[in-house]
Design a protein around this nucleic acid. Structure first.
Lengths: 134, 134
DNA sequence: CCGTATCCGCCCCGATACTG
DNA sequence: CAGTATCGGGGCGGATACGG
């Protein structure tokens, strides 16, 4: 397999695992930016078992600020991971729930969570050893 | 299932998918910080098919700066994803290769890449629709 | 209850220049 | 070839206060 890189029609292309990746418009980078934020993946996981209201999410994730809760929900809604429905009560209540896209993302996300839980100790150990040398 | 949150022995615990998550020392957050960087996951993918030298990686990923290449490699080595071996030639050559930990991470990572490639269009579409309304 | 608006510190990352 | 050192912009995210 050829792993060289080059400019193809002015595009930066990186061969990774035999698949050409357009770095200028990279899907992986794009998705990673979405869920790589501090709260995004946790938000999706929190909604995995059913819809929740704004204040419920706030109580469920006590450490998040009101600002970041709003922003995270808006970003995830914008990218299609979740939907927002407003119930015209008094005072108003807003419910957030995963879309099909959001639910489908749970598959790789949960695998990632499992891996993290299984290998966290190994990582912490490696880190400690590295720091001990330095 | 109970999804309430609470202080357990002074720790912030969030119930997610039935699993209690300690937010103060969260493995998922820890791992996400490692590979959530701009170049980290791409670096691991680049080394998936075999060891590469510093300059080879530099050519393979043309957009990365020398500084970030060094830093990314050091961070990934520190957390145990890859190993660094120096060959005492003149001039010196340094080879980077995935460890067992790094290779095992390829499983969830590749699943994530596949999902990104499959759903990128849907995300871009959702984003366009959202922006059109606003 | 469900947000907005504003200010601001921090740190990621790029650019550039220099070493062994 | 394989790094290190230094500077600086920009954006993420926290704190706080205010609005419908």
């Amino acid at each position: 397999m050829n792993r060289t890189t080059g400019a193809v029609k002015g595009k930066r292309v990186v061969m990774v695992c035999g698949v050409p990746m357009d770095m200028a418009n990279c899907p992986v980078r794009d998705v990673m930016d979405n869920i790589g934020g501090k709260w995004n993946s946790l938000m999706i996981l929190s909604l995995a078992e059913g819809p929740l209201r704004f204040s419920q999410l706030r109580r469920l994730i006590p450490d998040i600020s009101q600002r970041m809760l709003t922003q995270t929900l808006r970003d995830l809604q914008r990218d299609g991971y979740l939907s927002r429905t407003v119930y015209p009560t008094q005072p108003p209540s807003v419910e957030y729930s995963l879309t099909d896209l959001g639910r489908s993302f749970l598959v790789p996300l949960k695998l990632f969570v499992d891996w993290s839980l299984q290998n966290h100790d190994a990582i912490r150990k490696a880190r400690a050893e590295y720091d001990a040398v330095a």
